[in-house]
Design a binder for these strands. Structure first.
Length: 203
DNA sequence: CCATTAATTTCAT
DNA sequence: ATGAAATTAATGG
């Protein structure tokens, strides 16, 4: 099995089941914590983050989705409200498919349903790995765990992979401060586990 | 250019 | 070692 990160459903199929194009501006909220989960979302272009804010107002990012990545689907089989916000980082185009139509689509396409199981498995597996890493007190361990996770997401060919995240984003994904991320990256470079070229991170 | 955003350094704690 | 604030670099319009 290859490195599936999450669902990527053919756009025409989404449209045929009632998917609609939505455009969002940077900083614009697609849904927020507490909203009822009513749609399947898939990014066509742009960048969307799933986040929360802790009691001190510090942001924690769960994931950042790009082209062809989906979000919100894990809540469609539950009656719970969203436990996080979805906010655009860049101008983004998203296809939105109502829950009812989504379920209907899965019924008519059992292969999709199967694929979704594989995606959920993958996600649960990596969430577990991430929890283990995030529980560590060591910033380097947290960062390496995150980079492994992102790399598996990306499934690059010959090993070296450009981390397409800002240091601030890495910090928000690991619960670390941006300075700590910068310092940890420098240590990792000395140790040879990452390369820093100009300001790009190669892992 | 100027304004905005990101990266890095400085300076306390 | 860590974070807030200041400084420097880059990016985009």
């Amino acid at each position: 099995m290859k490195g599936i990160s999450c669902m990527n459903i053919d756009e025409n199929l989404l449209y045929s089941f009632g998917g609609e194009d939505k455009m969002y501006q940077p900083k614009e909220t697609i849904f927020k914590e507490g909203d009822h989960a009513l749609y399947y979302f898939q990014v066509v272009h742009g960048k969307v983050k799933l986040n929360n804010y802790n009691e001190e107002g510090k942001e924690f990012i769960h994931n950042i989705l790009r082209k062809n990545q989906s979000f919100g689907e894990t809540l469609l089989f539950l009656e719970h409200a969203y436990p996080m916000n979805a906010v655009c980082i860049e101008t983004s185009g998203v296809i939105r498919l109502p829950k009812i139509n989504f379920i209907e689509m899965l019924k008519e396409h059992p292969d999709l349903s199967l694929e979704m199981n594989a995606c959920f498995s993958q996600e649960i597996y990596y969430k577990l790995r991430m929890m283990q890493n995030m529980a560590s007190q060591s910033p380097i361990r947290r960062l390496e765990g995150l980079l492994d996770y992102l790399k598996s997401f990306h499934e690059e060919r010959c090993g070296d992979f450009q981390v397409a995240f800002t240091r601030q984003e890495l910090a928000n994904l690991t619960g670390l401060r941006v300075e700590t991320v910068i310092r940890a990256l420098k240590k990792m470079e000395k140790a040879g586990s990452v390369k820093l070229e100009n300001r790009k991170i190669i892992y």
